[in-house]
Nucleic acid binder design. Structure first.
Lengths: 363, 363
DNA sequence: CGGTGTCATGTCATCGGTGTCATAAACCGA
DNA sequence: TCGGTTTATGACACCGATGACATGACACCG
């Protein structure tokens, strides 16, 4: 690889002059500039960032650590890793600021994280981002305070800047929208109890009901997530069965995610119910492949992964430039309700009619 | 950030001795080694790769360019970007070789590629990988021959090393397996005609039929892909309708991908057909979220993206070490048939029975 | 007891850029 | 025409690591 000295020799000038042409500082005569540029072009010269870095101590590098990648495979959660949209968002933000992103994943082994951080530090990254595969609490090994760290899709208990989806608001807006559409009996098949999203979304579900003056009915809420285990379908079937046999059954099923909604479609249809006329379904995540391909297309809530990535990138950039170092509060990113044909607007009258139809159908 | 000199001063030795401790070359006294290690620990010292690189001219970096990321968004093909599995595979291969991966995406603008390459060259990457979002021909700007380049999921006309899915073999094995299961009338709803996968898979479809002595019936093959346009569903509906009304209708529908299969499920059910007893469906891609969540689970062909990534990484590593520089042939990676409940084993007798059942059903 | 080999460590130059300072020529107003 | 300023350029040190080579202290051998 050609060096600045090779170029200097070819152009018959000193290395410093080539440097001046490269960086546009100090004055350079027109003829000289041209000769230097010609030499650079002919030799395919590209300046070495390493050498530059040694003086400038600005690497233009960002380190991105994700447990997402391989954890997904391990967790028997064969999802399509939509969380990599976060990586894209970060990339987009960094490209704008002329930063290069280095990525590494833990391969599902949390204990690899310190080594990955050291690798990044040895490349003198200007900042680090950790991306989790789902909204959760994490605990990372300490990072030198001179290297800012941002958490995306996760948070810790020492106030590291975090970018999180606003799960509470998302579910709240979905339920409020369902209520405006005339639904009053809203079932909620949640994800596992222990995950953060479930806690927040349940909260959003309850406050939306309360604001509309509707009572919270525990019979309409049930966790139906076994983390991909095959018995999950049975669990969902059972929950739906019991809820539909309530004296006042739900008119719409909210699901913990779009994948669950896909299963719910199948189960409801196997019971002979027509979607969306007889029963409605809503999801969460706006997982495009499912939500837009299903018939009828699925009403769901956007999980704003791309936007979260961009926000994480921007927050890191401002930390690098020294701003907002003392701000400990997480950034919440909201996703909008995607209203599609799987939920119909209905008046209380329709609900009554439907209930009688359903009671005629033998279990 | 602490330097090797800071550590040397703290430990009361010369920089060179610290270097020896770091790299384990030359002999170091036990007491000295301990003192140095203690100093390194206390100062949180991490050696600078940039400085190292200047002498060694080995950066330990790999540049990864993907058009995948944003092109997907542009192409109104809101998929879940399974092609990012390729990136994971590359990551996995590189982590093993202690290489760090830098990523950049074109943001859908092909003209950004030269700039991205220059950025990577300025970081003195030891190799480059270009990842395409689907099996296609590409044309990249020239790269200095000293920096090896590998194409993943794409190829060019100048013989750059490429890693490709073996689409022909995949479809061939699927169709052969369907034939072994007793199917003789096998419909094929293909992706767009102009894409490489369609050409290769159609070839596999035909040779599998030929090997089994079955005639190729053009009435059973139809492109049904409008790249995500909403009229796609109509197109598929029409194709299925015409095929089912043939005097000798198909017993199984092969789809261009799993997403199409998801639509086909809905269409067939809306015609009152029971899956898989009355009609079978197979997909392509083994897109987990769809294939495993659908009821019945979808028979499909693995699109071995992760493996392709690993192979791409390995091929690049061997090119970097100087091996196989003259090998111009693409590496084909095969994915296995994932046999699931959406296709039943059936004897010719069943087929006859089914046909009569179907003919009783009014169109 | 001197020569030789090994061990432990230090000195110095070097990698490829850039900041600092020096220098020479050109220009410019009085 | 002359001192002062600007313009164009070069010499040199330095960033942080490491390779080549040097040095001093021992141990060992004949």
């Amino acid at each position: 690889m050609a060096t600045i000295y090779d170029v200097a020799r070819a152009a018959g000038v000193s290395a410093k002059t080539v440097s001046r042409v490269l960086n546009g500082d100090g004055p350079v005569g027109a003829a000289t500039r041209e000769a230097v540029e010609k030499a650079m072009r002919e030799m395919g010269y590209v300046p070495s960032n390493a050498a530059r870095m040694m003086r400038a101590s600005k690497s233009g590098l960002i380190g991105l650590i994700t447990g997402a990648i391989t954890t997904v495979r391990e967790a028997t959660q064969p999802a399509g890793l939509p969380d990599l949209f976060i990586v894209q968002g970060i990339q987009a933000a960094m490209a704008q600021a002329d930063m290069t992103v280095m990525i590494a994943d833990t391969g599902g082994h949390q204990d690899k994280v310190p080594r990955l951080i050291d690798t990044f530090l040895s490349h003198r990254v200007e900042g680090l981002i950790y991306v989790a595969e789902y909204h959760q609490q994490v605990s990372l090994p300490p990072v030198p305070p001179s290297t800012p760290l941002v958490l995306a899709n996760c948070f810790d208990d020492i106030g590291t800047p975090a970018i999180l989806p606003d799960d509470e608001r998302g579910q709240h807006e979905l339920v409020a929208r369902l209520i405006r559409a005339g639904h009053t009996r809203i079932a909620y098949l949640t994800l596992r109890d222990e995950i953060e999203a479930t806690r927040l979304r349940s909260l959003g579900y309850r406050t939306a009901l309360a604001e509309a003056g509707l009572a919270y009915d525990p019979n309409l809420v049930r966790p139906c997530d076994l983390n991909g285990h095959e018995a999950e379908t049975q669990l969902i079937w059972d929950a739906i069965d019991q809820m539909l046999r309530l004296p006042d059954p739900p008119t719409v099923f909210c699901c913990g995610n779009d994948k669950m909604a896909l299963k719910v479609y199948g189960i409801l249809r196997s019971r002979g119910l027509r979607l969306p006329d007889e029963i409605c379904v809503a999801g969460y995540d706006n997982y495009h492949v499912i939500a837009e391909t299903l018939y009828p297309p699925l009403t769901t809530v956007e999980l704003p992964y791309f936007a979260m990535g961009v926000r994480a990138g921007q927050r890191l950039l401002s930390l690098i430039s020294g701003q907002g170092r003392e701000d400990r509060s997480p950034t919440l990113v909201s996703g909008s309700v995607q209203w599609r044909a799987s939920v119909t607007e209905r008046t209380p009258i329709n609900v009554t009619q439907l209930r009688s139809i359903r009671e005629e159908t033998p279990k």
